[in-house]
Amino acid sequence: MTPADPALLARLHAQAFAAPWSEAEFADLLGQAGVFAVVEPDGFILVRVVLDEAEILTLAVRPEARRAGLGGRLTGRGAVAAAQAGASRLFLEVAEDNVAARALYDRAGFRPLGRRKAYYAAPDGGRTDALVLSLDLAADPEKPALP
């Protein structure tokens, strides 16, 4: 896998999120063992693998490129790469009110595990719960249930 450019990831993340991560934060994450990015021109997925578990750290798609299958494609490629790195389960947190992301992860076969109360800061200053989801990669690591 080609090393990811922290500056590019920061630019894409800033286009996708109101509270983007910095280039330094991406450089730090990419310098950690087991962290990798799958990058396409309009988005990326950042994954961390530790032993037999993996976590999606972030998935960013430029607003102009949404609803065209890129999020599903990135999720699928990230899941396959995590399985190839030895992960049998893939986890993530998603804001309870992020309907589009929840639909994408549901189509991909992720199932709910729990809830983190008041995990995300909301734009209005409030807090939003995060849903903890997981995907079983062990069933068929080459073909996760993805769009």
Score class of each variant (00 low, 15 high):
72 G>M: 15
2 T>L: 12
94 V>K: 04
43 G>N: 00
132 V>D: 05
46 L>Y: 01
140 D>P: 07
101 A>L: 02
109 G>H: 14
3 P>L: 08
144 P>Q: 05
134 S>K: 02
67 R>M: 09
131 L>E: 04
29 L>R: 12
82 A>D: 06
114 G>M: 04
16 A>T: 00
76 G>I: 13
38 V>S: 03
139 A>Y: 07
14 A>Y: 07
79 A>N: 09
53 E>H: 13
115 R>D: 14
111 R>I: 09
37 A>D: 00
118 A>N: 11
136 D>L: 02
3 P>Q: 05
97 D>T: 11
57 L>Y: 01
34 G>H: 07
60 A>E: 01
65 A>K: 13
52 D>K: 00
38 V>F: 04
6 P>R: 15
20 P>D: 07
82 A>T: 10
103 A>Q: 15
36 F>C: 13
39 V>N: 02
128 T>C: 13
88 S>K: 14
3 P>D: 13
119 Y>W: 13
80 V>M: 10
137 L>F: 02
16 A>N: 03
51 L>N: 04
56 I>K: 08
30 L>T: 09
135 L>Q: 04
144 P>N: 03
63 P>K: 05
99 V>I: 10
145 A>K: 07
124 D>L: 02
88 S>M: 12
68 A>G: 14
130 A>F: 06
124 D>F: 10
109 G>A: 14
130 A>M: 12
20 P>C: 11
34 G>M: 14
37 A>W: 01
73 R>P: 02
28 D>F: 11
61 V>W: 03
130 A>D: 11
121 A>D: 12
35 V>S: 06
95 A>V: 12
65 A>F: 03
137 L>K: 13
57 L>N: 05
32 Q>T: 05
73 R>G: 01
94 V>F: 00
12 L>N: 05
70 L>R: 09
119 Y>H: 12
52 D>A: 13
86 G>H: 06
102 R>N: 15
48 R>C: 00
49 V>I: 06
54 A>F: 04
61 V>K: 02
89 R>W: 08
124 D>K: 14
67 R>L: 02
100 A>F: 05
13 H>S: 06
77 R>K: 12
19 A>D: 13
133 L>F: 08
112 P>V: 14
135 L>E: 04
18 A>F: 06
21 W>R: 03
100 A>R: 01
107 R>W: 11
28 D>S: 15
6 P>S: 09
106 D>L: 15
115 R>A: 11
74 L>Q: 00
112 P>N: 10
131 L>Y: 13
78 G>W: 04
131 L>M: 02
90 L>G: 02
112 P>L: 15
41 P>E: 01
34 G>K: 14
99 V>H: 15
124 D>C: 08
53 E>Y: 12
37 A>S: 06
145 A>W: 10
144 P>C: 08
106 D>H: 11
145 A>E: 15
65 A>H: 09
54 A>Q: 10
107 R>Y: 08
104 L>F: 03
69 G>R: 05
103 A>Y: 11
24 A>T: 02
71 G>I: 06
114 G>P: 05
